[in-house]
Structures are given as C-alpha cells and as structure tokens.
Nucleic acid binder design. Structure first.
Length: 458
DNA sequence: TCCTATGATTGTGT
DNA sequence: ACACAATCATAGGA
C-alpha cells in the first residue's frame, strides 16, 4: 500500500467519522452511508490527490495548485483533520524518541578535549597537558624546543577544531532557520504544528551534534597522534651525542666500583651532557645492566676509558703532590682541568708503558717526584680519612680508575706480585655491585702496590 | 633488509 | 623511591 492510499484510508477511518469540525462544519461518514454527498467525497479525494501529487509538479504548476488548494472550500476542514492525525502520530513518535540521555562517548570526548587543552580556556590547558605528558615520558621538562613545537601543533589543532565547530554551529543554525521557515510556510498548506517544528529542530540538532561528535573524535585522534609523535620518547629516540656518551662512560668506568652517581653527580652529568637527570639515570641503569650481562664485550671499552681517565688522574695526582710539596694554596682541582685529548693513547701497550713509567717513577710524560710519594698519595686519597683540600673530591674516582688499569696491566700486575687480570670492579658473587656506602679499603703501606685495592675481592 | 646498539618504558622487588 | 631485569622501539651500520 502506498503512502497516498494509507493517508486516504486514515482520513476515512479516523477522522471523518462524524467529527465536529472547525467552523461548525461536519464531515460526512466515510463509507456508504445514506445521504452521502458524493460531491464532497469527490472534493476531498480531489484535494488529497492534488496534495499528494504536488511534489511531482513543476514549480509553477505547484504554485498554482497551492493557491487553488488554499482557496478550496474544503480546505479548513481537511486541514483540521490532518492536524489531528499528525498530532496523534506525533505523540507516538515523541513517546518513542524521548529526550536522549547524555551520550557517554560524547562526554568522554569532551573531557579529553578539555584535558588536552583543545576545548576550554585558551591558555594553560594545553601546556599543562604537555607538561603532564612530558613528565609521564621521563620528566624531560627542559625539552623546551619540542614542547613549544608540541604546543604550536596543539594550538593549530585547537584552531582548526574551533573553526570547524563554529562552522558547524553556523550551518546548523542556518539550516534550522531555513527548515523552520520552510515548515512555517508549509504549515499554511499542510498541517504542521509548532511542536512538530520543534521536533524537527531537535532532529536537526541531533544530526549536527553527531557531526560534531565526529569532529571531536577526529580532533582527539589528531591530539593522540601528536602526543605520541612528540611526547612518546620511544618514538623520538635519539642517540646521545658522542661527547655526552664519552662523559657518561668516563664517569661510569671511573666509578666502576660504585657506578651509582649521586643526585648531585647526576645533575652535573646531565648539565655536561645536555640531557636530563632522568636520562642520566636511565643511561646508568642500562649501562650497569648491560655491563654486568656482558663484561667481556665491554672490556675494551672499559680499558679505553679507564686508561683515559687514568691519565687525567695521574695528572691530577701529580698536580696534587706538587701542590702538597710546594704548599701552594692554589685551586685543588687544577689537575683535572686537563683535557684527555692531550694524551691520545693508541694501544694497550702504550698505556701499559705509560702507567708502568708512572708508577715506577721513570721518565715519561709525567715527572713524578718519586714513586714512594705517589703511593703515599694514593693511600691517602684512597681512604675516607683523607679530608684534605689539596685535591678534589673526585680524586677518589680517578684513583679507582688507576687501580682498574693497574689491575688489568698484566706485566705490571706480575711485577706487583701476581695480581690477577682485570675483573669487574665492585661486582660481587651475586652479580651485584658492592654496597655503595662501603668505602674502599685503605691500602696498607706494608702490602705494597701489589695489593692495590680491587673491588673484585668478594 | 637484517642485525646490533641504545634510549626509554614497564613490571617487580626491596 | 630506587634498582634491576625484561622488553620495546628506533637509530644506524653492514
């Protein structure tokens, strides 16, 4: 059954059953009653037919027909009946459609956009979210370049979002007005109640809000992608600069007996390497693990850095000794100012030679007063008891390095009394480093250089 | 393209 | 809170 027939039937079955009609006019019963005015029936049928086919007409024809319908003598009665039917069906539709509860998905999107600083107040939200995200990704709060980049992109998204939102709202309003006008205009020819217009407006708004939801959804996606691109550090992993790695390695191998930098040391390293404290912590965490896992692999590296630092240390010690001899009140750490580059060591052999020369007091790059003083210095520096201000606090670490190199120097070890080959400093039987608070043992002068402290004594 | 190195994250234990 | 261990994900070299 097509639409037209249904309406015809509805009209016949529902509304024309002796109903009192607007304007005191009574419509006749639908079927076959005695005294039926066939003319009226014909009229109604005719009007309905015209209404139903009006959309098929050309604009001019329709316009002419509309005018004809408006002037039709049956129009008020028919209009009233149609209103009644519409009212009834409208009620049932309204009953089924109830005002929808707040969409949880929409609420989620709204909350997220608010949290990300896309919606809500212009300033603060975005940077707060960026800071939070940065904190979550390792506390890199000083990564200002990337953050500003992130904020710029977020602002861009925000602008696009607001522009689109505005556009949608404008379009929605325009469309609503248009539809309302249309309906009001049409309400002259067909039964459209204000309630129905209201309902239509509701439908339009719902449609537009679903479009808005899509906009919100894609904005959220864009923000998520942005976040993952800019703030997920895994994605943007960059190797540290060679210099930074060198600094870290130097510290690590010179503190091999206790490679746990204090907070201050971490800050210092972070500053030197232009990285964050968390990155320093990560680096040391990784280094400790990987070193322990495969000491063999790191042997060469350890030797290299140990030797490098040893040279620096030797200079430092020499300077310290010199200072002590001359009672000079000059800067205690002056010895550490020397750059490694001054002392390029190309082979293990040269390292060994150099170190042997150092500790035997023979001539070389370092003009040590005598070996006895050297060891005395080391002994002094080694223990916690040494509080003197003549050398810097990190001399201890330099001495560590010296010991390390010494212990690896097979020839020297033999000369010193059969010290074993280098083994990982500080690593105990359990594979862990020694208690970080335990100071190194003070070398007894009677033990001689052969007993140079090694953290391998577990 | 594969493999290794490496910075970061995650889960767990202390 | 920190360290460790496992793992992920990417960079970079062969």
């Amino acid at each position: 059954m097509d639409e037209q027939a249904r309406i015809m039937q509805a009209l016949g079955g529902v509304s024309l059953a002796g109903h009192s009609i607007q304007g005191g006019m009574a419509l006749p019963p639908p079927h076959g009653h005695d005294g039926i005015d066939d003319g009226r029936k014909q009229d109604i049928g005719d009007i309905l037919h015209q209404i139903m086919t009006i959309t098929d007409q050309s604009l001019d024809e329709a316009q002419a027909k509309k005018h004809g319908l408006n002037c039709h003598r049956m129009k008020p009665a028919l209009f009233s009946v149609l209103c009644e039917i519409k009212e009834k069906t409208g009620l049932s539709i309204r009953g089924a459609q109830e005002e929808d509860p707040p969409d949880p998905q929409l609420m989620r999107l709204d909350n997220m956009l608010l949290a990300e600083g896309v919606s809500g107040p212009e300033k603060g939200g975005g940077s707060a979210a960026a800071a939070a995200a940065a904190a979550a990704s390792g506390g890199a709060s000083d990564n200002s370049i990337e953050h500003s980049d992130y904020r710029a992109k977020l602002t861009q998204i925000r602008q696009i979002y607001h522009t689109e939102l505005e556009k949608y709202e404008q379009a929605c309003n325009e469309f609503t007005t248009h539809v309302m006008n249309l309906l009001r205009e049409q309400s002259r020819t067909r039964p459209i109640s204000p309630k129905e217009i209201e309902r239509m407006v509701g439908i339009i708004h719902r449609k537009f809000s679903s479009i808005q939801m899509q906009l919100k959804q894609s904005t959220c996606e864009a923000v998520m992608i942005l976040r993952s691109r800019f703030l997920d550090a895994r994605r943007k992993r960059r190797n540290f600069s060679k210099q930074a790695t060198e600094i870290l390695n130097e510290y690590f191998y010179s503190h091999l007996s206790n490679p746990y930098p204090s907070e201050e040391a971490k800050e210092e390293l972070a500053k030197k390497c232009s990285i964050t404290v968390s990155q320093v912590s990560n680096w040391f965490g990784n280094k400790r693990i990987r070193y322990k896992k495969n000491i063999g692999k790191f042997q060469e590296e350890a030797n290299l850095y140990a030797a490098k630092t040893a040279v620096t240390a030797a200079h430092a010690v020499a300077a310290a000794v010199q200072n002590s001899q001359t009672n000079s009140p000059t800067t205690p750490n002056s010895g550490f100012q020397m750059k490694d580059e001054e002392f390029q060591l190309d082979s293990a052999e040269s390292k060994n030679t150099l170190l042997t020369n150092m500790f035997t007091g023979s001539s070389g790059s370092f003009n040590l007063p005598n070996s006895g003083d050297m060891f005395l210095s080391m002994q002094s520096l080694n223990g916690d008891s040494y509080q003197g201000a003549q050398v810097g606090a990190n001399v201890q670490s330099q001495v560590d390095t010296l010991r390390h190199v010494i212990s690896q120097t097979a020839g020297y070890s033999e000369a010193l009394g059969g010290n074993t080959m280098y083994s990982p400093h500080g690593l105990n039987a359990n594979g862990g480093w020694h208690d970080t608070t335990t100071p190194s043992a003070v070398i007894s002068p009677t033990e001689g250089p052969g007993s140079v402290h090694s953290d391998t004594s577990n």
